[in-house]
Design a protein around this nucleic acid. Structure first.
Lengths: 243, 243
DNA sequence: GCGTCAAGATTATTGCATTATTAATTCTCT
DNA sequence: AGAGAATTAATAATGCAATAATCTTGACGC
């Protein structure tokens, strides 16, 4: 179900949104409300409300006499939580993983730098709590993902910049995609995720010590390791030229 | 009108959304659909669709028997284009300007670094075009803002990372806020914005030369100058401890 | 205490009226 | 006759109203 919307209507948002993001309906294609209505077995009100929500995410536009059509991809709200989720499920398009990792590599070290300077005791407590949660998860993949997510959320929160905190949607998308891969793959033994705790602890230590550069470095290492793990898991080469 | 939604319903989204963001309705407060209906002179349908869109932005939630209420601020989609715009108009809350500048300082130099490595000839052409547009504007504030916006959009586009490109909403919000201040203030003579062209050109040169670090530095200087200009314009002190 | 029931709000359905925009048609002028 | 402008008709979204269904919550009674 759509992140913030409940009810039948929220399901419709999900179904239609996912289709568009997946490419079932290419930009410019028309959507036929009455067809959708019949297909999903809902009333036109539900469909209309769903289309309104999708329009607010930039996915579609509807003009009188012209009909309702998919907007060019450049107009999509790619940072919207729902859109990110829709892109993440199913087979993620090629660049998506790289884009996610890249943005994280930009945002999180910078967030750590700020966090090292602004963190309160509560921020620190939240970070420590997340690590404990991570240890307690002990291999259980969903629990680990939740703990990991809690950690990175706490990290951004400690930077005390609301807009930066808003970037957590990107991080969440990244972690969930990773999660889905871990589930899909038949990894022998451990998948090298249980030794992530020390790396996380290094981040907390640097932030506790109010050392911005150390914190940024620690996060960079953390992310580099995560990327390496993922790459090994799915066997994809580096995007970047080997400069 | 709401960015992507047209019609009466889009106006309702704007009115209600702005109120919530401005704080007229505090988190936890109830919204009364029929009251809004009467107030705006629209039907239940319009109000409901507006509330649905606002729910999808995380601003409100509505549960049966409890009513429709404003969600805690932490749940808001702060990176949503509409939310950013609503925050920007009126008197922007204290931290907002700082948050905007900070995020730009994180994202744009990183974007410039990537752009220096990945830019195509088309990307370069778009950047040059934006600068020409900036020169042609010659003092006219709205035209300058548009050109500035085009420049920074082109910069992010040149990084060839869709998610990063999505951050343009933040940059747009920053520029528009600045615009509103420039309009409001009675600046004597020029407001020091016309000499922004050389700084922008330095960015393009570095990207043309495929020099990532120079590009990042040039953008940092550009942003520092913009912040200084704005600060002088409104006379606000630095947020940061003077470390 | 625990289950039942009723109230109260959102949620969903339906049918109809309105509006806006495109596309075809007609009309006019050259 | 042909090109272009003005009118008209079709069509799809938009907006409205009335009604039914569903789900919580709180109270009542056992």
């Amino acid at each position: 179900m759509s992140v913030h919307v409940r009810g039948l209507h929220g399901q419709a948002v999900d179904v239609i949104g996912e289709r568009i993001v997946r490419g079932d309906n290419a930009p410019g294609d028309l959507l036929y409300p009455d067809r959708i209505e019949a297909e999903l077995g809902v009333s036109k009100t539900v469909v209309r409300e769903a289309l309104r929500v999708l329009a607010s995410k930039g996915l579609i536009d509807s003009r009188q006499k012209r009909g309702t059509f998919v907007r060019p991809r450049a107009d999509w709200n790619l940072l919207d939580a729902d859109v990110l989720r829709w892109r993440g499920q199913g087979v993620p398009d090629e660049g998506f993983l790289d884009d996610l990792a890249e943005v994280r590599a930009i945002v999180e070290p910078a967030g750590a730098r700020l966090a090292a300077r602004r963190r309160t005791e509560e921020d620190l407590a939240a970070l420590v709590e997340a690590i404990e949660q991570m240890e307690a998860a002990d291999g259980d993949v969903p629990a680990t993902v939740e703990a990991d997510l809690a950690f990175h959320r706490a990290l951004l929160a400690a930077a005390h910049n609301e807009l930066l905190t808003g970037m957590e949607v990107v991080i969440e998308a990244g972690l969930r995609v990773r999660d889905s891969f871990v589930h899909g793959a038949d990894h022998g033994a451990e998948h090298g995720a249980d030794d992530a705790v020390p790396a996380h602890r290094a981040v907390v230590d640097a932030i506790a010590a109010r050392d911005p550069e150390a914190a940024a470095r620690a996060v960079e290492e953390l992310l580099a390791k995560a990327v390496a793990d993922l790459r090994q898991l799915i066997g994809s080469p580096d995007r970047e030229e080997t400069a």
